[in-house]
Each structure stands twice: as C-alpha cells, then as structure tokens.
Amino acid sequence: MKARDRVLDAIDVEAFLLAEDEETARRLALTLMEELGLPGADVVFLEWRGTGARVRIRSYAHRPGDDYAWLGGGERGG
C-alpha cells in the first residue's frame, strides 16, 4: 500500500505564491498541484494582496463513493 492510499480523503497544500494578480495566483496554484503530481486540484482558499496569494489547494485521494484504497485492496499490489 502506498502512503497515498492511506490518506483518508484529501491532501491540502498550503503555500504563499508570488503573483502579480489573483488570476495568475489561481493558475499557479493549479499548475503547482500538477507539478506535484496531485491531480484534479481545487483551490479551497486563495487571498491575494499586492504581491502574492495565500493559498490552500486540495486534491482528493479518496472522495466519498470512490474505491477506498485504505480498505486494504491496495495491499495486494504490494
């Protein structure tokens, strides 16, 4: 089982992104998650003020209704 499989639901990334405007910050936030290999990201919180943005970006490892890897199915794959 990968560590990621043991994430109950979501992975949040907290950061401060330097960006000239809010739109850029939003785009950077999603690009960052792609670069980190965290797909389907959503910007949970973003506040931009002057030089950059405080962001919280989320990627779900398991959404309700998914096949939950933490149920043990993932262990077989070793």
């Binding site: 401060f16 330097l18 003020r49 002057g50 030089t51 950059g52 405080r54």
Partner: peptide, 10 residues
Amino acid sequence: IAHNRVGEGW
C-alpha cells in the same frame, strides 16, 4: 522585503 510585503498586505 518579500516577507514584509506579506505582513503589510495582511
């Protein structure tokens, strides 16, 4: 300076 701008912005 970058950190101070953050402080000032907030």
